[in-house]
Design a protein around this nucleic acid. Sequence first.
DNA 1: ACGTGATGGTTTATACTTGAAATAAATACT
DNA 2: AGTATTTATTTCAAGTATAAACCATCACGT
Lengths: 168, 168
Amino acid sequence: MALAKESPPVSPRSGVDQEAEYRAQTRLWLRLLACTTLIEGELRRRFREEFDFTMPRFDVLAQLDREPSGLVLGELPKRLMVSAGNLTPIVDRLVEDGFITRTPSNLDRRVQIVCMTVEGRKAFRRMAKSHGSWLAELLAGFPADRLDALTGELDALKGAVKDAMQKP
Amino acid sequence: MALAKESPPVSPRSGVDQEAEYRAQTRLWLRLLACTTLIEGELRRRFREEFDFTMPRFDVLAQLDREPSGLVLGELPKRLMVSAGNLTPIVDRLVEDGFITRTPSNLDRRVQIVCMTVEGRKAFRRMAKSHGSWLAELLAGFPADRLDALTGELDALKGAVKDAMQKP
DNA sequence: ACGTGATGGTTTATACTTGAAATAAATACT
DNA sequence: AGTATTTATTTCAAGTATAAACCATCACGT
């Protein structure tokens, strides 16, 4: 008789193909993680050495830079994909350092509006410029005419993952 | 006369194209980061909920699983791309919990050999199985026939970044 | 033997990160 | 009005991460 595999296929694909797809997915995930870790580590190192600044702090400023009238504090965790509790001390310190302001809203006293200061904006521009050139330096070896295609594939991947997380 | 741009081109490309390439590179980096953050967050959540385990701990076990005779401790930071100091408490706790052993080498008393225990191996297999199916679930919406191509592009990207970091 | 320097790990200080609990203010419902 | 629920944010405990300082051991040249 035919030997029953211990894990019956959940899709119409054969067991062998299923295994192959598993491996391909794992490989993709590991590459994705490796690329991100590699680039992130290098950018972090340079931020620290050049500006004595951290990436999470920079990320907050980057969001605020596009919002001249400031942003509701609660918007930051969503955009940066981090937890709310995480942002409190980061925002605290940015306020302390004079890069941003945090003012309670008059209409809803639970809500806080965060807004970049002139000084913060100046510091951000300086760092953003370096950030851009560092990135350009790191990615210089990757063919420019394949950048958009890769970005597109990552977009598709992101969409697929989001859908999968939405469903259940 | 021709107007001199304030930042002379570092490459034969025109200023406009250079700007466009900057933006394309930044877009790519942001997508890369978004994909990784998204998947990592979901995997971490499931690890915690299903197994009360963390990804760094899993990553250590994953490395050790492929090494029946164990691994020199110093090999782990390199493979996992984390700092050595970071691993000490993680390895400590894995030893405490009986998943791995840490024994000093007889030939060189500075060196430590870490090796998975039978129990650790069993626990790892169980978690790895779930990890694989979670990943399959998350990536199910991405066409299987484009997995390898994307992985290949990420490989190229990784290579380019590594080269750029080696040079200077 | 004996410095001298290189190597493997740990420790320490600081910062980020999460999830869960707590607080406080607004809204909805009797 | 008064209670309950929701929403915005902070606090807290535990874990992860780095860089830099440190300690022990090995390797080598004298």
